[in-house]
Design a protein around this nucleic acid. Structure first.
Lengths: 150, 150
DNA sequence: TATTGTTATACTCTATAACTATA
DNA sequence: TATAGTTATAGAGTATAACAATA
């Protein structure tokens, strides 16, 4: 029987790097997210895709992927899953016959709304110990970091 | 020819969730880390393991893993790699003959130091747009989030 | 030639179940 | 019976190369 009361371990140099703290927070967040979304059977990436499609109906598959940092090749399987479950529709484009334009089905819109009702309390739980100003500040700092990738 | 100058895409509900911004920052950080560490041939997790071992010579394999959130089963392969490369040594323990105590070899200590010289400029680059106070604040907020996992 | 979507493939990371040897 | 380490395996996430159709 282990009590989860093991004394905290000295992490050495690791503990001084912001990247480590960022990773631990992101992993905790992702695990809690996955748990909150279990009943919806929709994963992190797929929710992201559906959210972008909802905000931009008819957007190209490639453009959606690029907005989320998902590679063309990996988009295919992800969209296939969503199409198989009748949440997303591939509607051949008008002008350029190479591109595929995406839209949510009625079921997809309902599923997206359902996801949001699951995500809101999850976010609230993860951010419980941050006040409103700290939450804003956090996003500002994270966005400045993410922007370095460009 | 795509100029990387595609106009910013509306992410919908996704953009309002802190979890998304956290994930994007963590991904950017990890990618830059991997790039900075290319020549060392040591990955994120393995650096973490070596750092903990350096700070706690002789610590059990399981305890190291638990400190970093790595499962027993996955520790085996990770440590095997480090042992094969003569960076870590498995030294059977004294009292309990089930446990394996870990330590860095001389080569391992040199490799760890080399890693740090690569990581410091990487961290500096990723945090370039955050002043000293913001960097402290960021870690405080991230740790409060990571603590929710407990 | 360049681009969109596609297929195939591979590597890393993570998670689970079952085994062994010790305790 | 419980624990430390191990083995095997499977599912995601991500990355690259190559192809067809189209521009």
């Amino acid at each position: 029987m282990s009590d989860d009361l093991e004394s905290p371990v000295d992490l050495g140099a690791l503990g001084n790097f912001a990247g480590y703290h960022l990773r631990r927070a992101a992993v905790a967040f992702a695990a809690n997210f996955a748990n909150a979304m279990q009943t919806t059977k929709i994963r992190q990436v797929q929710f992201g895709i559906m959210s972008v499609i909802a905000a931009n109906p008819g957007m190209n598959q490639g453009t959606v992927g690029r907005a989320l940092g998902i590679q063309r090749a990996n988009m295919v399987t992800l969209i296939n899953e969503l199409v198989d479950r009748d949440l997303v529709a591939r509607n051949g484009s008008v002008g350029d016959r190479r591109v595929v334009s995406l839209s949510l089905t009625t079921a997809g819109e309902a599923a997206l709304a359902d996801c949001i009702t699951h995500i809101v309390p999850h976010e609230e739980a993860m951010l419980a110990h941050l006040d409103a100003h700290e939450r804003e500040q956090l996003i500002v700092l994270l966005d400045r970091i993410a922007a370095v990738g460009a």
